[in-house]
Simulated scan of single mutants.
Amino acid sequence: MHEVDMTKALILTIKDWQESHPEPVKIEKVHLIVGQFTCVEPVSLEFTFAAQTKGTFLDGVALVIQETPLIAYCHTCQQEYAPNIGLQYSCPDCHQPMDDIRSGRELKIDRIEYAPLTLHS
């Protein structure tokens, strides 16, 4: 389950971002873009994120995942197409193997929603 390693890297990236922020903030939501071709299961990623952040500075933070479809480009046909996931990723018209992926490999933080942290005396 590579979601565990991805979540650890995500937590470290968010922690670095938060520590570099000029003022203390409370993170409320983390928006991710996850491509269909990354083989990351959004439900598994959400579960792993919730489990690994319990009791940390990210406890209760919502993980919002936007999936992007797998889109390839066929240079022979000069057109984009959505390959069928599975053993055959070739162009549906000329059957050339998929060699130019236009989207679907993304795995990145899109944005972080946060609010100023209020310190109580």
Rank of each mutant, 00 (worst) to 15 (best):
F49K: 00
G86C: 00
G55Y: 08
F37V: 06
T38W: 07
A51L: 14
I71M: 11
E41W: 02
T53P: 00
E41R: 06
Q79S: 13
P97L: 05
P92A: 11
T53I: 02
L63K: 06
M98Q: 13
T56R: 08
R102W: 05
P83I: 07
R102C: 10
A62R: 10
S44R: 10
T53S: 01
G35I: 00
D93P: 00
I65K: 06
Y73F: 15
I71D: 02
V61Q: 03
K54G: 02
E106T: 04
E41Q: 14
C74G: 06
G104A: 11
T56F: 06
V34W: 02
A82F: 03
P83W: 04
E67K: 13
G55D: 11
G86N: 10
Y73T: 01
F57Y: 11
A82Q: 13
C39E: 12
I65R: 08
A72H: 10
C94M: 11
T53K: 01
C94W: 12
A82T: 09
Y89E: 08
Q79T: 12
D59R: 04
C91T: 05
C74R: 03
T68N: 03
P42E: 03
A62E: 14
Q79R: 14
N84K: 13
C74H: 03
S44D: 09
I65H: 05
E41A: 11
G60V: 03
T48S: 11
D99G: 08
P69N: 09
R102M: 12
C94R: 15
Q79V: 07
G60R: 03
P83Q: 05
E80W: 02
G86W: 04
F37Y: 14
T76A: 15
S103V: 06
L63C: 07
C91I: 13
Q96Y: 11
R102H: 09
G55T: 09
V61G: 00
V40I: 15
H95N: 15
R105F: 05
Y73K: 14
L87A: 11
H75F: 10
S90H: 15
I85G: 05
L70R: 01
T48R: 00
V43S: 14
T53Y: 01
R102T: 06
A72P: 03
T38A: 08
L45C: 07
H95S: 14
P69M: 02
T56L: 05
